[in-house]
């Protein structure tokens, strides 16, 4: 791909999603956008880019952005954050909310649903401790396609094995032919909304706990700071945020500080 084409497509994707595409990630364009090109009867990436240059076809731009921002996902990705949620993060928050028994959790990049369903299962496993609680898990993503998949809650054998322990698989999924479908008791705990993290998230309301894992890595420093400031605005003083293993707030934002001894967990300063 010539540099002008790369510059054009990467800045288009950047302006739409905040995703920073460095030249070493150019191969991603090929693997992600070829299916989009083919679907539209275009021969290759060059034709796709020419088409986009020629006219600003909004639906095509959305498709391109979605294809580039869709990420592979695991159930209980990295394991530890979900143990921290259960053992360290939830107990003090639940104690403070014991009067109104209301808890809101946001998955800022819900992708195909693995993270929100993992959180729902962690909560379900708490059993009677959560009797009478009103718990909302909201999953948002920038891709409509992927949210449809999340809503369907149906996973291949391959997908469920990426992280779902066998005991929980037996307990919370129904096997239908070769697929595994999340049982309604878990599925109904999660609601999905289309949302772009670069937009003002006020309409989503406030959240006690925010999962914003493996999203910031795709953004440049300025965008990271902006997103973290917005997230901070949506949280009460005692709220907690989870970031991915390769992410940090240090040098990026002063709205959060790492929680000592709880890797990946951040609190308001």
């Amino acid at each position: 791909m010539n540099p002008a084409d790369f510059e054009f497509i990467s800045s288009l994707i950047m302006s739409r999603s905040g995703l920073v595409l460095t030249p070493d990630k150019a191969y991603l364009l090929e693997s992600r956008l070829m299916p989009v090109a083919r679907k539209h009867g275009l021969k290759g990436l060059e034709d796709l880019i020419s088409t986009l240059r020629l006219r600003r076809d909004e639906s095509l731009i959305v498709e391109v952005t979605e294809a580039m921002t869709t990420n592979e996902s695991f159930f209980f990705r990295d394991t530890k954050p979900f143990n921290l949620l259960r053992d360290e993060v939830l107990p003090p928050i639940m104690e403070k909310r014991a009067a109104n028994k209301r808890l809101r959790i946001w998955c800022a990049a819900a992708s195909s649903g693995q993270e929100p369903y993992s959180i729902a299962i962690v909560l379900k496993e708490l059993g009677t401790k959560l009797a009478g609680w009103n718990i909302e898990i909201v999953g948002t993503d920038i891709s409509n396609d992927i949210l449809r998949k999340a809503q369907k809650a149906q996973y291949s054998q391959f997908e469920v094995q990426r992280g779902m322990p066998i005991q929980l698989l037996l307990k919370y999924f129904d096997k239908v032919d070769e697929n595994w479908i999340v049982k309604p008791e878990i599925k109904n705990m999660v609601q999905y909304k289309y949302w772009n993290l670069l937009e003002d998230p006020k309409p989503l309301g406030n959240f006690d706990i925010v999962f914003c894992r493996n999203v910031l890595i795709y953004f440049d420093a300025e965008t990271k700071g902006k997103v973290l400031a917005t997230v901070a605005n949506m949280m009460p003083e005692d709220g907690k945020m989870f970031l991915g293993g390769a992410e940090t707030v240090l040098g990026v934002s002063d709205k959060f500080k790492p929680v000592a001894g709880q890797r990946g967990v951040y609190a308001r300063p």
């Binding site: 394991t79 992280g163 322990p165």
Partner: peptide, 18 residues
């Protein structure tokens, strides 16, 4: 634990981690 074939390194890693 229980792995259903076919598997790949991600699945092995995830299961061994759990």
């Amino acid at each position: 634990e229980y792995i259903m074939k076919p598997f790949d390194s991600d699945i092995i890693q995830a299961k061994f981690q759990q």
